[in-house]
């Protein structure tokens, strides 16, 4: 019997029920086709999977110190970049010491969260704000693409707001038009800010941030400046701002989502 047609084998690797009895029998007995199928399957699994980073092991605390010393990096980078995810020393804790040392990454993260977010280091937040925004954009591109394929009339712009690390709040954001003006309504499940909450619209590449205002409750509506193109500023972000008089984004975001336009 000839080998399985390469187009067909690709569809089989994707899980489409396209194989005949004879194809399946061939796959069971032909090592060449089976190996090809397995290799394609690995690519499909990698693309589709959502592995849990919480199962990973953590390097010892001394590893970064050794790298830092060996490469003579700047003094400002002396702290272990993984440190915010490690449990804090008992002296820094507000709460009584936990009975057990957290073992998994997920445990460590939840442990540091219960100790409050106000002390979380902000050193690298700008970098990962950029990174997280870009990740949202990749996702948003996929979603808006699907939406435009499904309907020619744009649906009501809306976003699901998901918590960032160290937070558990979720929420929604919705754009409605009222009397010729656009309004953004944000609803949150909780208020976790250690300072105050501020609502932003952000460009995917972070080249622009528009502050819509302070949010002092779990639900608030903001006017969107006329002329502001939401397609250019699709990311809705609620930040935790310290009372420091600095008008810039603190780099600490509580929830974030991307408007489907």
């Amino acid at each position: 019997m000839p080998h399985i047609d390469p187009d067909l084998l690709s569809l089989m690797a994707l899980g489409e029920p396209v194989a005949s009895e004879a194809d399946n029998e061939h796959l069971r007995t032909c090592s060449a086709c089976a190996a090809e199928h397995a290799a394609l399957r690995r690519a499909v699994d990698a693309a589709r999977s959502q592995p849990d980073p919480g199962t990973l092991t953590q390097p010892s605390a001394g590893v970064w110190t050794a790298i830092h010393r060996e490469l003579a990096l700047d003094e400002s980078l002396a702290a272990d970049p993984l440190e915010p995810e490690r449990p804090r020393e008992p002296a820094e804790q507000q709460e009584p010491k936990e009975a057990q040392e957290p073992t998994s990454l997920a445990d460590r993260r939840s442990a540091s969260r219960t100790r409050g977010t106000g002390t979380a280091p902000r050193r690298n937040t700008a970098l990962w704000l950029i990174a997280a925004a870009a990740a949202v954009v990749i996702a948003a591109a996929g979603i808006s693409w699907v939406v435009t394929q499904q309907s020619q009339t744009p649906p009501l712009a809306a976003a699901r707001l998901e918590p960032l690390a160290n937070f558990a709040t979720t929420g929604t954001a919705e754009v409605v038009e009222r009397g010729g003006e656009r309004e953004l309504t944000v609803e949150l499940s909780d208020q976790e800010a250690s300072g105050y909450q501020e609502v932003w619209l952000i460009k995917p590449d972070l080249s622009g941030l528009v502050s819509l205002g302070v949010m002092d409750s779990r639900s608030a509506t903001f006017a969107i400046p006329p002329g502001l193109n939401l397609a250019e500023y699709p990311i809705v972000d609620v930040s935790d701002e310290p009372l420091d008089g600095n008008p810039a984004h603190s780099g600490v975001s509580i929830v974030r989502g991307s408007l489907s336009l």
């Binding site: 849990d52 997920a106 969260r113 990174a131 997280a132 990749i138 998901e162 918590p163 690390a165």
Partner: peptide
């Protein structure tokens, strides 16, 4: 469950996952 989701958010924002 919520904590777990928060922990993976940066790697797995929305579908399709980055």
């Amino acid at each position: 469950e919520a904590t777990r989701y928060a922990a993976v958010w940066r790697e797995q924002p929305l579908a399709p996952p980055a």
